[in-house]
Simulated scan of single mutants.
Amino acid sequence: MGKGDTEPTPTTTAYRSVMEEYGYEVGKIIGNGSYGTVYEAYYTKQKVMVAVKIISKKKASEDYLNKFLPREIQVMKTLRHKHLINFYQAIETTSRVYIILELAQGGDVLEWIQHYGACSENLAGKWFSQLTLGIAYLHSKGIVHRDLKLENLLLDKRENVKISDFGFAKMVPNNQAVRISPSYRQMNCFTHLSQTYCGSFAYACPEILLGLPYNPFLSDTWSMGVILYTLVVARLPFDDTNLKKLLKETQKEVIFPSNSNISQECKNLVLHMLSQATKRATVLDVIKNPWVIKFQTEQPTNEIRLLEAMCQPPSLTIHQAK
């Protein structure tokens, strides 16, 4: 509360006292979502700063409260990775859900680009290789993010990427994740199809825009392509103000500004991710890409091993596509 503020409203007091009961001192607002507000808070028991996402049950839709929110909490509980925002605790009361998360103090990558413009290729390489490690970890666990965008890439105080917002994340059932499908180049692991449209149009792959069942692993890599393009060019590759135009643009090869000094290796990687589904890079292709490997602080052997294992289902579970 600022000095000139009036008396706190009963609701403000209510959630502050709930938070205090659990040992959290709530500070300033650091973000707003459709159904909730994110605050900075101090966790007195561990003496650390955290982020608290407060979701109002009155404002949230039934679908969100009954389907997406429980799924988000379930997914986050299983995740532990240096490039993913850590989940600490969920607290539910009759009127609200409180989600306690790791605090990334450096803001988000979208704000960074809006402030400083295009990244140098070295910085883009650092951030993109960190994003790749985080997504490789997710995909190797059969989890898809489905809402990758610049504002969901947060930065810690050392400017390392932390992937956030698992509101649309989904655990793909194992038996569905291991079917051979010729259309996805025999990538057994990445053949589950989703029906739910998630995310933002500017980051959505053409099959989503066309309303077709889509492969969520490949929709994540398309969004990664949009992210890498935007890091090095400082604008989105596709104009999302007009859906018809957007659809046309996403079906063609993306164009880089003629005056940019982006390396061909980087451009080729973007083109491989922003391809039609049958030719699109999987995260396994991305993590093995020489341009990405150049920026890894250590060889991602563990991630590669896990992804490759996921792509080798036991022969008994293979259903040859008719």
Rank of each mutant, 00 (worst) to 15 (best):
R96F: 15
E121D: 06
C119R: 00
I85V: 15
S56D: 12
Y88L: 08
G125P: 01
G23I: 09
M76E: 11
W127K: 02
T132D: 01
E72P: 05
E40Y: 08
L69G: 07
V97E: 13
E102M: 04
A90L: 07
K57V: 05
Q74N: 14
K58L: 11
K28F: 08
I30L: 14
I85L: 15
T93I: 13
R16C: 09
K126R: 13
Y42F: 08
I100A: 07
L101G: 13
C119Q: 04
N86L: 14
R80C: 07
L101R: 14
Y43R: 03
N66W: 03
K59E: 11
F128K: 00
R96D: 14
T132E: 03
T94W: 11
G125Y: 02
W112Y: 15
L65H: 15
Y116N: 01
Q74G: 10
Y24T: 01
G106C: 05
E40L: 15
A118Q: 08
L110G: 05
V52S: 10
L101K: 12
K28R: 15
D108Y: 10
I55Q: 10
Q46E: 13
R16Q: 11
S56W: 03
F87T: 09
E92M: 14
Q105G: 12
E102L: 03
F87I: 08
I55P: 10
D108L: 05
D108P: 11
E25N: 08
D63Y: 05
E72T: 05
I29P: 06
L65E: 13
S120E: 08
V48N: 01
E92W: 12
G107N: 10
K82D: 14
T93A: 13
A51H: 10
G33Y: 13
I73N: 09
M76S: 15
K77T: 01
Y88A: 04
K126T: 09
Y43W: 05
L101W: 12
S17L: 13
V97H: 14
I99T: 11
E62D: 12
Y98G: 04
L79T: 07
K45E: 13
Y116I: 00
T37W: 05
Y39A: 07
K45D: 09
I135F: 09
Q105C: 06
L84A: 10
Q89Y: 09
T37N: 05
G117Y: 03
Y22D: 02
Q105R: 09
Q89S: 14
G134E: 12
M76Q: 15
I135C: 09
S34E: 09
K59A: 10
G33P: 12
R71S: 14
V75P: 00
W127Y: 12
R96N: 13
G36W: 01
Y24W: 00
S95H: 12
Y15T: 00
K53I: 08
S120P: 04
F68G: 00
C119V: 04
S129Y: 03
S129I: 03
H81Q: 10
A90E: 09
A90I: 05
D63P: 00
K59H: 06
W127D: 02
N66K: 15
K77R: 14
Q130C: 08
E20W: 06
Q46C: 03
K77E: 09
A14V: 02
H83R: 11
G107Q: 07
N122A: 15
V18Y: 05
T44D: 01
A104I: 04
S61D: 11
G27Q: 09
N122R: 15
A14R: 10
S56L: 06
E121Q: 15
S129F: 02
G31W: 13
